[in-house]
Design a binder for these strands. Structure first.
Lengths: 336, 336
DNA sequence: GTGAAAGCGCTAACAT
DNA sequence: ATGTTAGCGCTTTCAC
């Protein structure tokens, strides 16, 4: 910067004024500075700017994994929305573990960005509560979160209820849940507040509403996240002679594994077994047959989350915000 | 930091020494400092560290879009590999356009990170050539790249040749290319060096090898990136009476759209039309039927790219590296 | 309309 | 083993 100043015959302050489009710079001076900038190929050092001015116009988003379509779509949405606000987005991956989330978070919080959005899945309530952050931190996800944080979540249990209700209304009587966890039991700790627990909760609710008696043997807990697990779990259940006429998969990712397993077994979808997923991924429309799914408006989440964090970055320290994104059911071939 | 120093009764330099695990700090002093750090909840300011020490232990990866499974898988691979090297990864999205890439790049280059990996699709050779970067920049992708840059690419044309050769060997005589571009023609500029151009090139080569005469009407250019486009393009081709007994899709993403279109039309895969994709996405195994695909070892790319950029960050300024990742064919149900 | 001085928080280099 | 000094590159403040 001082090189530029020297070449243009001005002070560094004037260079800074020009680069930041501040008023009260003479036209002739401005053009001399710009010429010098060009000539020297000068570019600001954002680190220095951030240290002094306290902003980089960048927000960090921490997701469990890049390689889950749900988070990929969410990240893409955030990038677009932040761009509309003149801000950049960087995304980092936590690996979906407690440690990973803490590590990603501490890296992201250390002053490099203007704000942080954390899609939490592994952190315990107390760990979240222990977080002190210099810059705004917004939480995304299903778990309960200390009241002092802004939090955007989705209507998990309601979405699941819609899906299972749809299957029951359609005539199914034995609806398996791929990725389901028996509430209060569970291998290891019961996790009523996890995404899987909440979505399983909707399965119970739908049964209650319709009077169909739920059978907890239909909760296929082996299928937690990956499609490969789901494929194995469903194949195993079929081999064990488990009888079901529909599957509610707690994520679309899992649903794709379910579809593959049913296809492997020679079962027809939806005639023999109907399938509904959750998340309404872009790719689900291209499954064979196209996958019915609970749609969570990524747009809604993104718009609201960005608006909240933008306000925080601008200094608003009003009441914490808690928002729940609406859900809806999209019926396609897999349950039509 | 000075608060910590005061509380511990030492200088800020000693605090810095403790925090950076430098030797020659008395045990008693160290523990006093750590206690003070704890008590005050102090955390380093990475911006200041970067400004002074010139490192943040973070590399930026710029991909066209978070929401393309290929790049999501690649990003996940990079994150894991960099973690092994004690470095963080942040990912940003360029939107796959010239402008987006330039903007993402200039943001990422401005001193915030120790290095940048750019997966380029939109930049012209001259624009890449004009780039000056203070920190190491490694390019990923198909386009030709000025010789002074490190560049990792994949054997696009060879992979496509393998796929089409497999289809022809299997008895196909009319292999359509979803996403194919006629070399030298093309609507707008011909783009022999684009990913689509290179992969189409493999289609020509396979025909040449086997003596089957290629028919350029089989190049379905309408299907460039998204599955939705591919679905439309294939549906359109079928409606127009185009006859083909196999489809090579230039990406798996496109292949999923092709599978959907064939399913829509009541055609059986692979009996009526065999399908092979390119990229071997994780999800392709779960398609119905499972998708044959050209496998590009993401691991290979990631390992080599990381090793190169790590060397650059450590100050190695030897000859630019140009690497081509190997490809292989994975045959599954869609062409078995 | 422009510039001089000070300092953001940290650490390299050099004392002691 | 610990401390002092200086400065990374920028922008805030205030003076002119």
């Amino acid at each position: 910067m001082s090189d530029v100043a020297r070449l243009a015959g001005v002070s560094t302050m004037t260079v800074s004024n020009v680069l930041n489009d501040r008023p009260r710079v003479g036209d002739e001076t401005r053009s001399r500075v710009l010429t010098a900038v060009d000539e020297l190929g000068y570019e600001v050092n954002l680190t220095a700017r951030r240290l002094r001015a306290g902003r980089v116009d960048t927000v960090a988003l921490i997701v469990p994994s890049f390689d889950h379509a749900y988070f990929a779509e969410l990240a893409a949405g955030f990038a677009t929305e932040f761009a509309r606000h003149g801000r950049h987005l960087v995304v980092t991956q936590s690996g979906a573990s407690r440690e990973g989330e803490l590590s990603a978070l501490s890296q992201a919080r250390l002053g490099l960005y203007d704000g942080v959005i954390l899609s939490a899945v592994g952190l315990a309530y107390e760990e979240v509560d222990a977080l002190r952050s210099a810059q705004p931190l917004l939480l995304l996800g299903e778990q309960p979160v200390p009241p002092r944080f802004d939090h955007v979540c989705i209507a998990n249990s309601e979405g699941a209820r819609l899906a299972v209700r749809h299957l029951l209304d359609r005539g199914a009587r034995r609806v398996a849940v791929a990725g389901g966890v028996a509430v209060g039991r569970g291998d290891g700790a019961p996790e009523p507040d996890s995404m899987a627990g909440l979505r399983t909760q909707g399965w119970y609710s739908a049964h209650e509403e319709t009077g169909v008696v739920p059978d907890e043997r239909l909760l296929l807990g082996g299928a937690r996240y990956a499609a490969a697990d789901a494929r194995r779990a469903v194949a195993g259940a079929l081999a064990d002679g488990l009888v079901f006429d529909a599957v509610f998969a707690i994520t679309d990712e899992i649903a794709h594994g379910v579809l593959a397993a049913l296809h492997d077994a020679g079962l027809r979808v939806p005639q023999d077994v109907a399938v509904v997923g959750f998340d309404d991924l872009r790719m689900s429309e291209f499954a064979t047959p196209a996958l019915s799914s609970v749609n969570v408006s990524r747009d809604w989440i993104v718009r609201h989350a960005v608006s909240v964090i933008e306000r925080r970055i601008s200094g608003d320290d009003g009441e914490p915000v808690r928002l729940t994104a609406p859900v809806g059911l999209v019926v396609r071939g897999s349950s039509a």
